[in-house]
Amino acid sequence: MIYKRTEQVEWRKFENESLLLNVATGTYFRINEVGSLIWENLDGKKPAEELINLVVKHFDVTEAVARQDYQKFIDQLVADNLISVVE
C-alpha cells in the first residue's frame, strides 16, 4: 500500500520529533523519531517496504520490529484521518 499525507494536516519538525496539526479538527499530535521518519516519507510515492527498510537502516532494528512499528503507526494515522491511500 502507498499512503500520502492528507492536505488538512500541517506539520513541523522539532529536533527529533514532529508535530502534526489536523486543521479540520484543531487537534495536534506529537510523534517520536521513528514516526517522524515515516511521516516525512509518506509522500504518496514510496511503498510500505521502502519505508520499513528506512526504519531498519536508521534505527538499527530488525525487519520484524520495523514492520510492527510501521503498521501500528500507519493504523493510527488512518484512524485519525491524517493519511489517505494512494494505491
Binding site: E17, L21, V23, R30
Partner: peptide, 16 residues
C-alpha cells in the same frame, strides 16, 4: 522539553 513541543502545537493552532 516535552512542554516546549506541546506549546509548539498551540503556536501552530494560533498561527492558523
Amino acid at each position: 522539553r516535552k512542554y516546549a513541543v506541546t506549546n509548539a502545537g498551540r503556536v501552530m493552532l494560533y498561527e492558523r
